[in-house]
Structure formats: C-alpha cells, structure tokens
Design a protein around this nucleic acid. Structure first.
Lengths: 204, 204
DNA sequence: CAATTACGAAACGCACAAGTATCGTAAATG
DNA sequence: CATTTACGATACTTGTGCGTTTCGTAATTG
C-alpha cells in the first residue's frame, strides 16, 4: 500500500474506518450491480457513510472505483493465504497449479474478482481504471512467469516458449470461461488447464 | 440469420437499408465510445436515421445492441474470408492456426470485436446481451474444437485433454491480452499461442 | 476557549440520455 | 383515391445519478 504523507494535521482527523468501509462497500456494490448500475448513494448507505465523506477523499466515481480495486488487491494478498500460498519449496508443477488455482478462486468468488469483471469494459475509456487493472495484472504476472520458468529449467516444459505468453494462456483460459462463456468453473478446471500444458504430470 | 415471418404487409414497408445502417452504426459507436457513453442519438445521426425509426424496430437500447452484435456476426462470417478461410483440406496444425488468427484479427480490429469488448462487462446484468455473446461464442467453438480433435486423432496432440478446455486456452490468451493487458497483439501472437501447444511444429 | 476540519443527514442543482409524441410527407395496398 | 404504415425532424417528458451545499454537531490542535 502506498501512503502519501499528508499535511501537518489540523482540525478533526478523518476516520480511517470510514475509508475502509467505503472501499469495501464500493467493491461489493460493484460486484453486485456492475459499474453502470452502481450508485454512490448505494455505496454510501452500505458503508454507513455520507456522500460528502466520500467526496472529501476522492474526486469522482471512477476514482473511488479505482481506489476500491487497489484496496481489494491489498486486501487479497494476505487473504490469498486462506487457500494456501504457493511457496518456493513446492515442486514447480505443484507451485504453478496452486497459483493458477488462486487466481481462479479470486476471480470467481471474491469481491475483487467481481469488481474486475464489472470494470473490464470500462477500462478502454477510463485511464484511471486502466491503470488500476494493470496494477492488478502486474502483481500476479511475475509470480506466474517465474513458475513457468522454473518448469522450463527443470526440463518439464519446452524452454523455447515465451513464459509471458504461457501465462496468457493459463490466465486467459480462466478469464475466458468466466467472462465470455459466463460460467463459474471450480478447482478442477485449474487442474485441467495446467494439464493441457504439462500432461498428466500434475500433482495432488 | 434468423428472419421471422412478419404480418401480411400493409402500408409503407420498412426500409431494409435503414435497418442495416442502424445496426452498423450501433456497432461502430459501441466500439468507439463503449456501451455507457453510446447514445442512441449518436447512432441515429450516424445511420442517417431518426430515433422513431429505431424504436419501431427494437424496444430498448440493449435490444439494439444485442441485434447489432448478431448482425456483426452475420456480417463477419462471409467477411472472415478476407483473411483466408480455414478449409477442411488444410493440415490440422495450419488449420488450427488459421482459425485462431481469424479470431485474433476479428477481436482486435473489427467492429464486432470492438463491440464485444464494450459489452463484456454488461453481460452479467443484461440477459439479452448474455444471449448474444453466447451465440457469438458458440459459433466459433465447434470449429476450433474440431481442429483440436483432428490434431489429437493425428497424434499431434495429447488425446487425453478435453478439446473444449484447449479452446479456452487458445481463445483465452487472445482475450486476456486484449481485455486485461490492454494490448493489441498482431498475427505473430497467434503463432506463438499455437506454438505453446504444438511446439515448433507450426507451419507457414 | 478559539479555530479548524470531519461527520451524517438531507436537500438540491443540473446535465444527460432513454423513450415518446407530433407533424408533414412518402410509399405501399385495394 | 382512401387507408395504412413508415419516414425524418424536432421537441418534449421523465427519471436518474453525479457532485454540491447547508446545517447542526463532533473531534482535534494551540
């Protein structure tokens, strides 16, 4: 989380809990109703805050949504542990599978995932959202690409292939299933996706 | 195209060119401005038609957008030939590559592709759009899955893998690059994507 | 205690876009 | 020629939601 040093602090300080509550509410409403149907009155009500409190923190609706997504990302990193973090000690194949599965479960069944699905079309015309989505994307990519590279070094996967493209295939399959085919695949789908690349050498 | 038999026809008939012009305009505006910012006045102006003319044909904005997408699909099938149609006579690998490339170029640089990118987030809350997107998806899937199956039968690809999942990887990679990574990959990307599955045995 | 800033509640201004209505005219049928 | 329906142009109605303002109160500093 990037915190900006603020002025010396006069008068009554802002409630930090409100900030969190607003971003959580925004994420939830976004996932439930989509970007278009999400109103700031909804968010305010859900956060038990007032609109002026929101506008004191962010200037526009898109800014709030972008902040909510980054907030969701901050929140997801520690929480991803509930599935089980992919550790350096795993066998490369198991490690890859675990990361893919984390991404799947995040996209399918977390507020951040719902929010991403809701804003993905807006991104083309809202630079602020585009930046936020890029941050999310880039937070996962190196981990995944690293796992692919480890497999290549271990001789388990063709070393001539570009790891970034391989990541596109893996994550793309999940996004495609959810966004285009409009389904909510479960954990077995992650296994099958990884198996397409590694054959039946997918553990656990 | 599904045409519904209409009433015996009294009075002045509707201009079929207007219908086409409206759907073309809708597709273009959709791709340019996105669903939210697209106004029906824009569409009417671009189609050189009036709003009543539009509302005589479809009842709501979403209905127009859904019709435009299906119209774009009708229009794309013959036009996909401009790239070069994948024929039954191709070698399986070449055939697969050609279909993937067709999908890539359609998504990246065709009005239908732009429209799909624009509506993909709305789909979750607009059943009419969800149906339209499903029609598009299902129009391509069997062709792709068939090409995968041919490769499996030819022994060029692991026969134990589910062809539908393989299709998700292929198309997903393209959609992911465009929607999430916000890039516009060119033809080489199609080759690299297919190469991830088939190795360097990708022809042409 | 004075000054400053935050808070919730409520109301408001305002722009914008979907969908409708009106009107004079055009194209079809019988 | 009478009837019916479509057309473009234009104006209109109506709802909605962003962003602002006001107000009485609370929390902080000096």
């Amino acid at each position: 989380m990037v915190t900006v040093r603020t002025a010396p602090a006069r008068g009554r300080p802002r409630r930090a809990e409100s900030t969190d509550a607003i971003l959580d509410a925004a994420l939830a409403v976004l996932a439930e109703r989509g970007y278009r149907a999400m109103t700031l009155d909804d968010v305010a009500a859900r956060a038990r805050a007032s609109k002026p409190t929101m506008y004191r923190r962010w200037p526009t609706k898109v800014a709030i949504v972008a902040a909510a997504i980054l907030h969701g990302l901050d929140r997801a990193n520690p929480l991803a542990a509930h599935v089980r973090p992919a550790s350096r000690d795993d066998a490369p194949a198991a490690r890859l599978l675990r990361i893919v599965e984390n991404v799947r479960s995040a996209l399918v069944s977390t507020p951040l995932g719902g929010a991403i699905r809701a804003v993905i079309s807006e991104v083309a015309h809202e630079p602020i959202l585009a930046d936020a989505l890029r941050v999310v994307e880039r937070s996962r990519r190196p981990i995944l690409a690293g796992a692919v590279r480890a497999l290549q070094e271990a001789g388990a996967f063709d070393a001539r292939r570009d790891p970034d493209t391989v990541v596109d295939l893996l994550l793309g399959a999940i996004y495609f299933r959810v966004l285009v085919r409009q389904e909510r695949p479960g954990p077995p789908f992650s296994r099958e996706v990884v198996a397409v690349l590694l054959g039946d050498a997918v553990p656990r």
